[in-house]
Design a protein around this nucleic acid. Sequence first.
DNA 1: TCTGTATATATGTCATACATATTACAATAA
DNA 2: TTATTGTAATATGTATGACATATATACAGA
Lengths: 231, 231
Amino acid sequence: MSMPIKKLKPIDNLTQVDKIEIRLEEFLKHENFNPGDPLPKEIEIAQALGVSRTAVREAISRFRMLGIIESRKNRGMVITRPDVLNNMERLMDPKLLDGETMKDIFEMRLVIELGLGEILFLRKTPESLSKLEEIIEKEDKTTNRIDRLKYDIEFHSMLYQISGNNTIMRFQKMLMPIFDYVDSGLKSRQKPNSENKRATHRDLLEELKHGTPSGFRNQMQSHLWYFIEKI
Amino acid sequence: MSMPIKKLKPIDNLTQVDKIEIRLEEFLKHENFNPGDPLPKEIEIAQALGVSRTAVREAISRFRMLGIIESRKNRGMVITRPDVLNNMERLMDPKLLDGETMKDIFEMRLVIELGLGEILFLRKTPESLSKLEEIIEKEDKTTNRIDRLKYDIEFHSMLYQISGNNTIMRFQKMLMPIFDYVDSGLKSRQKPNSENKRATHRDLLEELKHGTPSGFRNQMQSHLWYFIEKI
DNA sequence: TCTGTATATATGTCATACATATTACAATAA
DNA sequence: TTATTGTAATATGTATGACATATATACAGA
């Protein structure tokens, strides 16, 4: 008969560097560090923790990767404001992500676009509306398929720009490759003839000019229907 | 009179490790590495690049941080599927971010919630609706302010759960601290009496049960009005 | 005031040795 | 044979000491 082996929890499997990382994070929070504040020297940290400078450097390089620590020769290290999206951008590669996550991202792009109406009505200006107008006109004139796609993207990008929300704009931009990848792999559930009433860019613009947020949301839903019904 | 000094771009200010990182990224893409594939040994990489193992390790530790490389003793290193949100979560700290970004995030949370309607109608089930029902009932019974807040959060969390989109759910969860922080710092533009017609959780549920996506979007807009008018 | 020089300093890089966990396989006992 | 245990090989993890390099500071000279 064997021992009740399940009771035996595995011991700390953290590497030295992991532990240092944890300690440093505690240290930063506890000492209430703010962007711009200088950090102790590498050697001092190593000595204080009783570890080698090598290990400290590896731990610190992780924070550098996150963007919350910067270091320059002789100046030492300082706390910096991280760029929230910077790291995420590097991971937006269809080869790296799993299907489930990519599907999630596909939906997320749609969700954001559908939810954008409210903010657009708050931020729209005559100038921005006329820019949308320009894009639509260029779109109407062209027959080239590739150009139409270009203007399509331009139109939606302009909407984000009008939102004045830089984070959302960047977020959308980095979602794009995944969105396109998923889109090209999904089949429509409906017959092609169901797209008869799809709202156009002009419909959206007219709604944005003279309509209501509620109306705009509905138009956008109609406009994106082609994608939504793929979900 | 000064030179047109702005035209003078700074020379390569990349560290050795930066260069190694770039080379490795090229290598990974060019050789078409996929999750699960093993990487060459550290020493081999170092020799191939003509640099020290230390530098290679620092570069690789960055990829480990991103979550696209994992390494175990003797097993060597392998490409792994990164967790897209993992790094971002660590940065969601009001002390680290600047006001602009936090405002963006505040809006983003609202945008997502406003755009969620469509997907909810696609994914709702009798079971999930009755769970919402339960939460509302508990909410109605309580008079405690803190409990009401708890059920409020629970209700909205349940909506995300119904969406079936794990990425959005996690995303929202990590946006929360920033959202609350910004919210507590913003003042309402309107007089308090303007909230007379605010849609309740029950309104949302009824709409979700018997209404339409369009109706739900409007109800949600009304429900979140308190926040929206703070934008 | 500006420019060049010297020096001190903290990070960046390197070479080397050893520690440690994991694998594969041989050795041993049942 | 079968299962457990020991052992060597291996790749990553850690430590140490040395040197390289960029930057700040101070000071000298024009």
